Amino acid sequence: MNKLMSIVSKINLLPEIARSRALTLFFGKVVKYAGTTGIVVEELTGHRCIITLKNRRAVRNHIGSVHAVANALIAESATGFLVGMNVPDHAVPVIKTMKLDYVKRAKGDMRAEAHLTEEQIHAIQTLEKGEVTVAVAITDSEDKEPVMAEMIWAWTPKRR
């Protein structure tokens, strides 16, 4: 268990009503940019991460939906937090590839849900370096998937 997993495991012991707020505040302090955007960490375990973003004026584009880059942010955050939960403390996770296809107009609030398989987790935890494609679904308030995303994360030993 790495340091991040240890901290998040303790936060996950909080009552459900306080858990999301604590996770969001924690990641807002650790990842400064994420803390300024209004993302909410709804759930985070070693296997799954759910992040939401309300459609409010500060994140809207010219057609009134959540901006493309804000959708990229929730996908990158959900997949990155998940990889970060599993990478050993002697390694560092880095985004290698972000591919997003905007296939239809998003309506309302946005949600990103990322998953890792047992095989992916095993590779992240045991290989010195490598890469993994993290599954992520980006849905809107109508439960449609207006953005198709592919996120490839790599991990390498930390430099001394």
Rank of each mutant, 00 (worst) to 15 (best):
M1R: 07
K3N: 13
K3C: 13
L4R: 06
S6E: 15
S6D: 15
V8T: 09
I11C: 13
N12H: 06
L14S: 05
L14M: 15
E16G: 01
E16T: 00
I17D: 10
A18T: 00
R19E: 09
R19M: 12
R19S: 04
S20M: 10
A22N: 08
A22S: 11
L23M: 04
L25Q: 09
F26H: 07
V31D: 00
K32W: 15
K32H: 11
K32Q: 11
A34N: 08
A34G: 08
G35P: 11
T36H: 02
T37E: 03
G38C: 04
G38D: 07
G38M: 12
I39N: 00
L44F: 12
T45V: 05
G46M: 13
G46L: 07
G46W: 06
H47K: 15
H47M: 15
H47N: 15
H47G: 08
R48N: 07
I50Q: 08
T52K: 15
L53E: 06
L53H: 06
N55E: 05
R57C: 07
V59S: 01
N61G: 08
H62Y: 00
H62M: 00
G64M: 01
S65A: 02
V66K: 11
V69K: 07
A70I: 12
A72F: 08
L73G: 00
I74E: 00
A75S: 15
S77D: 01
A78W: 09
T79Q: 07
G80N: 00
F81R: 02
L82E: 03
L82W: 05
L82A: 06
V83C: 02
V83A: 00
M85A: 03
M85N: 06
N86T: 06
P88I: 01
P93M: 09
V94D: 01
V94T: 08
V94S: 02
K96W: 07
T97Y: 12
M98T: 04
K99T: 04
K99N: 14
L100C: 12
Y102H: 05
Y102M: 05
Y102T: 00
K104P: 13
A112P: 01
E113D: 08
A114D: 08
H115F: 15
E119S: 02
I121C: 03
I121W: 03
I121T: 04
H122A: 14
A123I: 14
Q125R: 13
T126W: 09
L127D: 07
K129V: 11
K129Y: 10
G130K: 10
G130A: 05
E131Q: 15
V132P: 06
T133W: 07
T133A: 14
V134F: 03
V134T: 05
A135N: 13
V136T: 06
I138W: 03
T139H: 13
S141Y: 12
S141G: 10
E142F: 09
E145P: 12
P146N: 08
M148C: 11
A149N: 08
A149C: 06
A149W: 04
E150A: 14
W153M: 11
A154T: 12
